[in-house]
Simulated assay, not measured.
Amino acid sequence: MSEARSSQNSVKSAPRKVAVWCIDHPITAVSLYICVVSLFFLAFPRVDFWASGLFHSAASGFAAENVPFLRDVRHLGPFLVRVIAITCLAVLLAKLLVPERGPLMPLRMPVFLLTTLILGPGILVNSILKDNWGRPRPRSVEEFGGDLPFQPVWKITDHCDSNCSFVSGEASASMWLVSVAFLVPPTWRKAVLAFVLPLCLILSVNRIAFGGHFLSDTLLSWGLTLLLVLVVYRLLYVKDPPLVSDRQLDAWFTVSGRRLQDAFQRVSVWIRQGWRGVVRIFSEH
């Protein structure tokens, strides 16, 4: 009896141990996730057809893309990304324009958010993968009424020139929203994740329902984006010393802001002198 209980306890504790290990080794865990997902879809590519087929019918195609409410939902993720990006830029710009004042928030925060947004959804996903891997979208492949052959994950083809299916840009942008949870106080972290993770799932499934991406595009986009966020976070916050500190950023923006002010003043003086010269010339005649 005691052996049976011990065996049940060990089975129950196994997922907890895995979760603890993943939390302690996040970069390794996400790297393994990317490898496992990639190998799974290379071995079982028909799973992509099955997932997309849940939202497709021969008569109406991917009908979800014609539902106004779902089209509106699609814009929620990009809207939140724009709001956060504009806020970050405003914080940095305010420090440049008023260098004598302290920043509105520690400057590593906007630098971290903008860096991960540019490198992840911007460069890695949209500029490198989507524009070069050439994977046709589900709505374009023969199995769903299109005229292009299905292509597996990670295979570079010439069936699509740009903005292709592999990987999902909107899934990447929605997963990027998780980066906010790294910066909020620990007591807020669960609340932020409770909002962002379901939103990420909804926005990503929405793209599959529209025939815009395969399931594998979405799952790999999540992993690649989260991996990049974790690496940048380690460089800026975990590494000792960090790649750059709040104090160093404050000093750099202060010096740059003062130089900018000096440049504005010189230009202003030059314009005033030029204007006076023009006025003098016309007054003499």
Rank of each mutant, 00 (worst) to 15 (best):
P103V: 04
M105F: 15
W21Q: 09
S168L: 05
G212C: 06
R234I: 03
V98Y: 12
G211A: 08
T225M: 01
F62M: 03
L199K: 00
H159V: 01
D147I: 10
D48A: 07
P136E: 05
Q265I: 01
I123G: 02
F253Q: 02
R82Y: 13
S31T: 13
A14C: 09
V30P: 08
L129P: 04
F144R: 01
A209R: 00
P106F: 05
V37W: 10
L203K: 01
P99I: 04
P15S: 01
F253H: 05
D48C: 08
F150T: 05
Y33H: 10
F195W: 07
S256F: 15
E65Y: 07
F41T: 00
F79V: 12
L220T: 05
C35P: 06
P138M: 05
D240Y: 04
L249I: 11
V47Y: 08
C35N: 09
V111D: 09
W252M: 14
F214T: 04
L89V: 15
Y233I: 01
I27S: 06
L119P: 05
V167W: 09
L39H: 10
I86R: 06
K17E: 12
P198E: 03
R135S: 04
S283M: 13
R137D: 00
L119Q: 03
F264A: 15
S140P: 00
F40N: 02
G257M: 13
V192L: 02
A51P: 10
L70P: 10
F214D: 00
I23M: 12
L201A: 11
H75K: 14
F150E: 03
L249G: 14
W252N: 07
L177C: 00
K190H: 14
S221V: 06
N132E: 03
F144G: 06
D24N: 14
R137M: 02
F79C: 11
G53R: 11
N9R: 15
R46C: 08
A94T: 07
E65G: 07
V238L: 05
K130F: 00
F264W: 15
W188Y: 12
C164L: 09
R276D: 13
E284Q: 14
S10L: 15
V205K: 00
T225C: 01
D161Y: 14
E143W: 12
H213W: 04
V20F: 10
I118E: 13
A59S: 14
I23C: 10
C22E: 08
L177Y: 02
G212M: 06
Q8H: 13
P242D: 07
P110W: 06
G274L: 10
M1S: 12
V98K: 13
V83F: 10
H56Y: 15
P186Y: 07
D217S: 04
V153E: 03
D262C: 10
F55D: 11
L183C: 00
F166L: 02
L129E: 02
S38D: 11
G274D: 13
W252Q: 08
L113R: 03
V67M: 15
M175L: 13
G274S: 14
W21P: 11
K130H: 05
T225G: 02
C160P: 06
W50L: 09
A43G: 08
Q261P: 09
P68Q: 08
L39S: 12
L113C: 01
S127F: 11
R207D: 02
A4M: 10
E143S: 13
R46F: 14
V232Q: 04
S165L: 05
N66M: 12
A58Q: 14
M105I: 14
R135N: 04
V196K: 03
H75N: 14
I23P: 02
F41M: 02
L119S: 08
